[in-house]
């Protein structure tokens, strides 16, 4: 039993690290949902495309630097997100589900485009951080773990500072609470919603770049990874930003424990059970907020 307990701490640690990435992905999904009532099923495909762009610009000799490549990828993805928002904005005003189906269409297009442009190759894309590792109380902590934690902390802190303290953040909260009233008050709905889409796409890129080093990059890796973010967002109630962070950590840790102690081959089934159980126990998500998704 003590052997199992000895395994427990590292499992929770690595689960929490992955959970941070799920959380960053989920934050983007929730931002888009809060601003426009659309669930962006293209989130993973957009981020996957960005990862490939970074790879294309850095892999070969004579490429531009890593940061420059990330900047290019961010610019492309933010532009894509704004186009998506532009196409679906009027549609989603009429019905939530219609806009959501539309994002599935965007996702399919981006998925196909990634395959057409970059082929079905499987490549490696590492973070430009020195390899380093240390042991603290039986925990192996690597430079990758530290990078993920630092980036997550920065992202979350910035996001909450902007949303809580700036005029833009107030506008975002106003629009997500009552779009009509905010328009009456003279807010530029399109600008605020566009910023939300762009920011969310950028968060997706960050999550993608951080997850790819642990596996490999193929045309479906990031989209598959982002599915866990959907679960995280649902656990958090889909309209609560703190909830999505908590949801990400819960999903990350729970899935890690499950695949170690029960079976790694039933991960998706476990995710399904987790979603259904959580939604029955906490109908409004772990941290419920007003203005959630439509419910029966």
């Amino acid at each position: 039993m003590s052997a199992a307990l000895q395994d427990l701490l590292p499992l929770i640690w690595t689960g929490a690290i992955t959970g941070c990435l799920y959380a960053i992905g989920a934050l983007g999904l929730v931002m888009i949902f809060k601003a426009t009532r659309v669930v962006n099923f293209a989130h993973g495909n957009m981020a996957g495309l960005a990862a490939f762009v970074v790879y294309a610009f850095t892999a070969h000799s004579g490429g531009i630097g890593w940061l420059a490549a990330v900047a290019v990828a961010l610019a492309i993805v933010v532009a894509l997100a704004l186009v998506t928002y532009g196409v679906l904005a009027r549609v989603s005003e009429r019905s939530d589900l219609r806009g959501t189906i539309g994002t599935l269409g965007i996702g399919l297009i981006l998925q196909g485009a990634t395959q057409v442009v970059f082929g079905a190759d499987i490549v490696n894309l590492d973070l430009p951080v020195p390899r380093w590792g240390t042991s603290v109380a039986g925990l192996r902590i690597t430079s990758y773990d530290v990078a993920v934690l630092v980036v997550t902390a920065l992202v979350v802190a910035t996001l909450f500072l902007v949303i809580e303290r700036t005029r833009l953040g107030i506008a975002f909260r106003a629009v997500s609470t009552n779009p009509f009233a905010s328009r009456v008050c003279g807010l530029n709905l399109f600008a605020v919603q566009g910023v939300a889409w762009g920011t969310a796409a950028g968060l997706g890129v960050i999550a993608a770049l951080l997850i790819v080093p642990t596996t490999f990059l193929s045309s479906t890796t990031v989209a598959t990874f982002m599915l866990q973010s959907f679960a995280a967002a649902v656990l958090g109630g889909f309209s609560s930003l703190p909830g999505s962070i908590l949801g990400g950590l819960v999903v990350g840790i729970a899935m890690n424990l499950f695949s170690y102690f029960v079976s790694p081959e039933l991960n998706s089934t476990f995710l399904l059970v987790l979603i259904l159980t959580a939604l029955n126990l906490f109908p409004g998500g772990i941290l419920p907020q007003r203005g959630g998704g439509s419910r029966a």
Binding site: D96, L227, E265, S268, T269, L276, T277, N280, A296
Partner: peptide
Amino acid sequence: WPSRALSGIYLAVATMALALAVPELILL
């Protein structure tokens, strides 16, 4: 039954999780 209270996006995500589980359930 367990998803009877869900609708809209929640149901869409739950059905997505259901679809993901299919191949591994078949292999099971």
